[in-house]
Simulated scan of single mutants.
Amino acid sequence: MMKCRSKAALIADTLNSLSSFLNSEHLLPHARILNNSFSRTRKLPLSSTMFFSLFRHGSTISEDIDFIFQKMSAPPSKNAVLHRQSILNHDVWKAVLKKQISLFYGAGLAQNRYKGYLLVAIDGSKVMLPESPALNQIFGGPLNKACRTKEELIAPSAHISAAYDPLNCQILDFIMEPYNVSEIPMMREHLDRLLPFLEGKKVLILADRYYGSVELFRWCALHGFDFLVRAKNNFFKDLRGEIPEAIQDARFTVTLNKPWIKRIKDPEIRQSFQEDPDVLLRLVRNDYSYQQEDTAIRKKDKKRYKVYKHVDVHAEYFTSLPAGKFSREE
């Protein structure tokens, strides 16, 4: 019981520290677009503006104002809220996220590990944005024969990406970019931004098929991190084809030639490959099955019901994890 109370008190202290940071002047430089933004005492200070953005859930701004500011005798007007949001530099959320990570991991509230490894999973997705000519120009969207230019887009789309600690349920970094920005540069932005936090820790980077690259593998090696990345079908296809299908756990070497090395943009990684052009990889193959849950609509009464589909998967992975500590099945 004492342990439960101690942990509850630790969580409360950590959240109070985060709340104090959100209300402190240290946040102002990160929140300003204009030099004098949020400098005067108003009914809607920076912290309230941020809380409004965080806790919106209604269908209209007026509905959210009534809910979020219900305890105020004279809630702010719709125009006041829109004005405050228009002068908020949204890079402020990067500072808040950095502070949150520092507090939760520093206090020992996010200490779950897998065999001593801090797991960092990276993935992205395309998301639809509200209809807006300005957002069309900034973010773009899928173009095709029916929609050839940004101006013709009905609704814009963005590419979002997150670095996530799945064992501690913590978002470590988040990026929102235009539709046509690819996964790999966003991943590198995550890793570069998180490097001060990750350095000195035992880290395992987890990623899906579109993130595998020799640059990522060498970056991990240079910083002492391990990786586990699902293999795209055509990635090192010839070298993988030389390994018989019956062999499900094997090692092979990728040797970069001079044109390949020359195309690498990161100067540190390019210099590393000039000194040592070989990348030793472990290829792990495995097959597994699962039941995929979905919903269908019944014709007679239009009601939804659950359906299950049996799925068989053949997956291949590139990893730097040693076979002696991590088996193929694991």
Results as ranks from 00 to 15, higher is better:
K98Q: 11
A296D: 04
I171S: 03
S47G: 01
P76E: 04
N168A: 02
W260C: 11
K3P: 02
P244W: 02
P196R: 00
A315F: 07
I154L: 13
T41A: 13
A95K: 11
G124V: 05
D13C: 14
K325V: 05
L135I: 00
A146D: 09
D278H: 13
I11C: 14
Y211T: 10
S132M: 06
R84C: 10
V307I: 15
D13R: 14
G141N: 10
L256S: 00
E152G: 07
Q292T: 08
L204N: 07
L198A: 06
N16P: 00
D91E: 13
N79A: 13
K309E: 14
K98V: 09
D123H: 06
Y288P: 00
Q274N: 07
R270W: 04
S320D: 04
Q170F: 07
N144Y: 04
T149L: 08
H90V: 14
L281T: 01
S320F: 03
K300Y: 03
F67S: 11
I264M: 04
M2I: 13
N136M: 00
K94M: 08
R32C: 13
F38Y: 14
T49I: 02
T149H: 12
D13T: 14
I247E: 14
V254P: 02
Q137K: 14
K98I: 08
P75E: 06
A80G: 11
P259G: 03
T255C: 05
F55C: 09
P322C: 04
S53N: 07
I68F: 10
Q100K: 13
A31V: 03
I184F: 11
Y164K: 03
E215V: 06
I68T: 07
S37D: 15
F104K: 08
N23Q: 12
A80Y: 12
I264D: 06
I269P: 01
R230V: 12
L135H: 02
R230T: 08
Y117F: 15
A110F: 09
P29R: 08
A296V: 00
Y290L: 08
A146Y: 06
Q292N: 11
S86E: 12
